[in-house]
């Protein structure tokens, strides 16, 4: 399929922790952009899921974050840098079902320990780096077919 991507397209979003009402705004914008560019539907779905989960993590755990995406003719890179508590044990956090979310978040149907695994599953490259007391950075790359 012909993609309408001749140049690098990028955008940034400020995400605010605790603001559940705005969840999904960045992923919706990204989805619209990818749709407009004629990107494969499977890729759009993967990018939307990964980005939405990243947004939720910021809303649930962090004070704030910057979400930045870059679309090139070959792939899309989504990078989220948050100011948050950081993750003590990344290996544990990556385990499906492991969560440190408080009860009220779980009652909303979040915090089931699926966020980071979902993000990884939907990415071709997944990098996570965290400093306790400072924040977490996640970078995801999804390649176009």
């Amino acid at each position: 399929m012909a993609l309408n991507i001749n140049e690098i397209i990028e955008d940034s979003f400020q995400l605010i922790g605790g603001n559940f009402a705005t969840a999904g705004e960045a992923s919706t914008q990204l989805k619209m952009k990818l749709t407009e560019l004629g990107v494969d539907e499977t890729i759009i779905r993967r990018a939307a899921i990964a980005t939405f989960e990243a947004e939720m993590n910021v809303i649930i755990y962090a004070a704030a974050a910057r979400l930045h995406y870059v679309i090139t003719p070959r792939n899309i890179t989504i990078r989220i840098e948050d100011m948050g508590p950081g993750i003590e044990d990344i290996q544990l956090a990556m385990q499906e079902g492991y969560s440190t979310a408080p009860d009220w978040v779980r009652e909303m149907g979040w915090g089931a320990g699926m966020g980071l695994p979902n993000m990884k599953k939907n990415s071709d490259e997944f990098r996570i780096d965290s400093v306790v007391g400072e924040g977490t950075t996640v970078e995801m790359v999804i390649n176009f077919p």
Partner: peptide, 22 residues
């Protein structure tokens, strides 16, 4: 909600008791 994100299909009807904005 993460389960629905991961495993529901396009065009599905979603049955839930969640009622919040997300």
């Amino acid at each position: 909600l993460s389960d629905v994100m991961a495993n529901s299909g396009e065009g599905n009807v979603w049955i839930t008791l969640q009622t919040h904005l997300n």
